[in-house]
């Protein structure tokens, strides 16, 4: 059991906890939190894909210039994680706005399955 396994397991459990949270309730806030957990799990997993033992942070400093080839972390996953965090922020904000709309029109955050009641507007 090394660090990689530990991180991978925690990432996948976050994803699993999120999935369970989606399945086990009908509260909009609970769903938002669950989706957030899933996204966090994936982000941790993404960071992990760029890591391997002994690698250094991919920032060029003076100590690199002399010592021949040095193993870097793969910087691409870090860039992906940044993007994915930003997307997550956007969708979470949007979902919170929807939750507010839901609370205003139904007086509760429990989302029952009757979308048929929506009015038809142009």
């Amino acid at each position: 059991m090394n660090v990689v396994h530990l991180v991978a397991i925690s990432a996948l459990s976050l994803f699993g906890i999120g999935l369970y949270g989606l399945w086990s309730g009908r509260n909009v806030l609970r769903w938002i939190l669950a989706v957030g957990l899933m996204e966090t799990g994936i982000n941790v997993f993404l960071v992990l894909t760029g890591w391997y033992p002994g690698a250094r942070v991919p920032i060029i400093t003076e100590s690199f210039s002399t010592s021949g080839p040095v193993p870097f972390l793969d910087p691409v996953p870090s860039a992906l994680v940044l993007t994915s965090i930003v997307i997550g922020l956007g969708t979470t904000t949007l979902a919170l706005a929807l939750a507010i709309l839901h609370a205003r029109s139904h007086g509760t955050l429990e989302c029952e399955a009757d979308p048929e009641t929506a009015e038809v507007l142009e």
Binding site: T91, L94, A95, A99, H102, S105, T117
Partner: peptide, 17 residues
């Protein structure tokens, strides 16, 4: 929707996420 129930859209958000 600007007024009324957003339940349909919440379902869209859930599936999309």
């Amino acid at each position: 929707p600007q007024t009324g129930s957003p339940r349909g859209v919440i379902r869209y958000w859930l599936f999309g996420s």
